[in-house]
Simulated assay, not measured.
Amino acid sequence: MAEDVISARLHARVRRDFPDADVARGVVGALRVLADELANSRQDTERLLAAAVLSAAGDVDQFRAAIRLARADWRDLLMAGELGHGNWPHVLDEELGSP
């Protein structure tokens, strides 16, 4: 089986931010599609996907907006998720926990 593009710590964050199991499954599915769509960005996949989750802050409508933003310009998504600067690995660890 191929490795999941969504890390265990990002899965945990999705479950925390979106406690309804059906909603969380939908978010995870959308993240998998987004990972495929942004594969050519040459950016860290976890960083991109986490930016969508973090910018949504548990709000499904905000998550949908983050997905639209990513499709328009993934750099704007990174800024919205506060992962657009050089310290993004540290911010990601703070938000998701150490890998």
Rank of each mutant, 00 (worst) to 15 (best):
residue 76 D to A: 13
residue 17 D to Y: 13
residue 62 Q to H: 13
residue 98 S to E: 14
residue 52 A to Y: 07
residue 71 R to K: 15
residue 76 D to G: 13
residue 41 S to G: 03
residue 30 A to H: 13
residue 98 S to F: 15
residue 87 N to C: 09
residue 80 A to R: 10
residue 48 L to P: 08
residue 66 A to T: 09
residue 98 S to H: 14
residue 49 L to I: 07
residue 78 L to P: 02
residue 82 E to H: 01
residue 47 R to M: 01
residue 10 L to P: 01
residue 4 D to K: 08
residue 87 N to G: 09
residue 90 H to Y: 11
residue 8 A to N: 05
residue 21 A to T: 14
residue 41 S to N: 05
residue 23 V to I: 14
residue 42 R to S: 09
residue 84 G to Q: 04
residue 29 G to P: 08
residue 40 N to T: 04
residue 19 P to M: 04
residue 66 A to Y: 13
residue 60 V to D: 05
residue 32 R to G: 07
residue 55 S to E: 02
residue 13 R to S: 07
residue 4 D to W: 13
residue 29 G to F: 07
residue 92 L to N: 06
residue 89 P to I: 08
residue 12 A to Q: 11
residue 1 M to I: 06
residue 78 L to E: 01
residue 88 W to D: 06
residue 61 D to G: 11
residue 81 G to A: 02
residue 28 V to S: 07
residue 8 A to F: 03
residue 53 V to F: 07
residue 7 S to F: 06
residue 58 G to S: 13
residue 53 V to Y: 08
residue 12 A to N: 08
residue 11 H to C: 06
residue 47 R to T: 03
residue 40 N to H: 09
residue 87 N to E: 14
residue 71 R to W: 14
residue 64 R to S: 15
residue 60 V to R: 07
residue 40 N to Q: 09
residue 23 V to H: 11
residue 28 V to E: 14
residue 2 A to Q: 04
residue 73 D to K: 09
residue 1 M to R: 14
residue 57 A to I: 01
residue 33 V to Q: 12
residue 1 M to E: 12
residue 72 A to H: 13
residue 38 L to G: 10
residue 97 G to N: 11
residue 56 A to M: 11
residue 95 E to V: 06
residue 59 D to A: 10
residue 84 G to W: 00
residue 81 G to I: 00
residue 82 E to M: 00
residue 6 I to C: 02
residue 9 R to V: 05
residue 44 D to Y: 08
residue 59 D to G: 11
residue 47 R to I: 03
residue 13 R to W: 02
residue 11 H to F: 06
residue 67 I to G: 03
residue 23 V to W: 05
residue 81 G to Q: 06
residue 37 E to F: 07
residue 73 D to L: 03
residue 72 A to F: 12
residue 68 R to L: 14
residue 22 D to C: 06
residue 96 L to P: 02
residue 7 S to Y: 09
residue 13 R to G: 05
residue 8 A to L: 05
residue 17 D to A: 13
residue 31 L to M: 04
residue 81 G to W: 02
residue 90 H to L: 14
residue 98 S to P: 10
residue 66 A to Q: 08
residue 50 A to R: 01
residue 34 L to V: 05
residue 88 W to T: 03
residue 94 E to K: 12
residue 24 A to F: 03
